[in-house]
Structure formats: structure tokens, C-alpha cells
């Protein structure tokens, strides 16, 4: 049965009906077969997606006007993108290691991820520096304004991710038996978020390249 169907079915139950009551009494209490952490992360990713989508809508609204002047894409921006891709790749390997309970590898992958992420942020700041030196100020053209806004907001999201990364580190470095599962779970959530940020960046960067 398709999922859509089931939502309609679910909403058309008659809770007062004795037959329905027999089914309902067996209900465990949760609606989705997914952990709270993962659902919470999805919730936040949906909000972020809407957030960036609204920016993109205003961007596409604005760029049709004549005063729009595209910005150059410095080489450094490509390098930064590459950094993000590598980070995601490292994360995949960390995930594989954590699934095998090989936390020594996870530890060293997590450190690599942190370094790469800081490098990325530093790289973005360098790009800003270059742009400002070349006279592309935030107020001189809407294209510039969007460039700075997109990079800044993406960077802030990454900073937020780094806070979670620290919590992950704390859990991975504390290999008591009882929380192995928890550490695994955290590594997984952290990885999902990083992949999400990569996707966001690819979309934003692609958008700026194409226009």
C-alpha cells in the first residue's frame, strides 16, 4: 500500500467505533519507524531547506533585472567545494568504520573532518577577502549581496554543525560499552548533516555559476 493512501486511511478512522478500538488498543504510540534524533535532524533540515529555498526564490526574482552583474568565480571557490566533497567522503568512511565498531578509525576520521571543515571556513573567508580587494562590495550589486549572504549563511550552518561535531567527538572518545549504540547513532546524524550541507552548497554554488 502506498504511503499516501495510508495517511488518508489513518485520518478516516472512527476512533469511537468498537472495531477500530480493538486495533487502536494495540498501537504502540509512535507514528514513524525512525529514531527521535533522526526525525529531529530531518525537521531541522526541512526548515533549512525552506530557508534556502526562499532565498533562492528571491534570487531568481531579482536576477532578471538589468542591473544584475554576475560575479567572477575565483579558483579558490572550486577548491573549497572540493574540500567539502572530500569531507563528505571522509564521513562516509567514518560511518563504515563506526558500523564495524572500529572506533579508532572513527576517531581519526572525525579529527580529519574537523580540520577540513575549518579549512573550508578559512577558505571561504579568503574568498571574501579576495572579493573585497577586487572591489566587489556587498552593496555594489545584488549579485554580490547574494553571494555574501549565501556563503555567510552556509558557513553559519557549518558552524552549527561543528557544535554537534564536538558532541560527537565527546561520545566517540568515551567508549563505554553502554553508549556504543549512541555513539554510532551520533556519527550517523553528524554525517547526514554534512552531506546535507554539501548538497546545499552544490545547489547554491551551481546557481551562482549558472547565472
Amino acid at each position: 500500500m502506498s504511503k499516501k493512501n495510508s495517511i488518508f486511511k489513518l485520518l478516516s478512522q472512527k476512533p469511537w467505533d468498537p472495531d477500530q478500538a480493538k486495533l487502536d488498543n494495540l498501537h504502540e504510540g509512535s507514528t514513524l519507524d525512525i529514531s527521535k534524533g533522526k526525525l529531529g535532524l530531518r525537521y531541522l533540515m526541512i526548515i533549512s531547506t525552506i530557508f534556502f529555498c526562499l532565498f533562492i526564490v528571491t534570487y531568481s526574482d531579482r536576477l532578471v533585472y538589468q542591473d544584475w552583474k554576475s560575479m567572477p568565480e575565483p579558483i579558490l571557490l572550486w577548491l573549497n567545494t572540493l574540500l567539502l566533497v572530500i569531507t563528505s567522503a571522509v564521513f562516509i568512511s567514518a560511518q563504515i568504520a563506526s558500523n564495524k565498531n572500529n572506533f579508532e578509525i572513527v576517531k581519526n576520521r572525525m579529527i580529519a573532518i574537523g580540520l577540513l571543515s575549518f579549512l573550508f571556513l578559512l577558505g571561504q573567508l579568503l574568498v571574501w577577502q579576495q572579493m573585497i580587494d577586487q572591489g566587489y562590495y556587498v552593496s555594489s550589486n545584488p549579485a554580490n549581496a547574494y553571494f555574501y549572504v549565501f556563503t555567510a549563511l552556509h558557513g553559519l550552518h557549518l558552524l552549527g554543525g561543528l557544535v554537534y561535531w564536538m558532541m560527537t567527538i565527546k561520545k566517540v572518545w568515551n567508549p563505554k560499552d553502554i553508549i556504543v549504540m549512541k555513539a554510532k547513532h551520533t556519527v550517523e546524524l553528524c554525517a547526514i548533516y554534512w552531506h546535507f550541507l554539501l548538497a546545499v552548497w552544490v545547489v547554491l554554488f551551481g546557481l551562482m555559476l549558472l547565472t
Binding site: 486511511k9 486495533l23 494495540l26 504502540e28 514513524l32 529514531s35 527521535k36 549512541k182
Partner: peptide, 13 residues
């Protein structure tokens, strides 16, 4: 329809 609403395991933690 019961399977869709009352799902099992839930949290892996």
C-alpha cells in the same frame, strides 16, 4: 491499515 499506524521498534537506542 493497522501496520501503517502501529509500527514496531522505534528507537534504535
Amino acid at each position: 491499515s493497522y501496520e501503517d499506524i502501529a509500527v514496531g521498534k522505534g528507537d534504535p537506542i
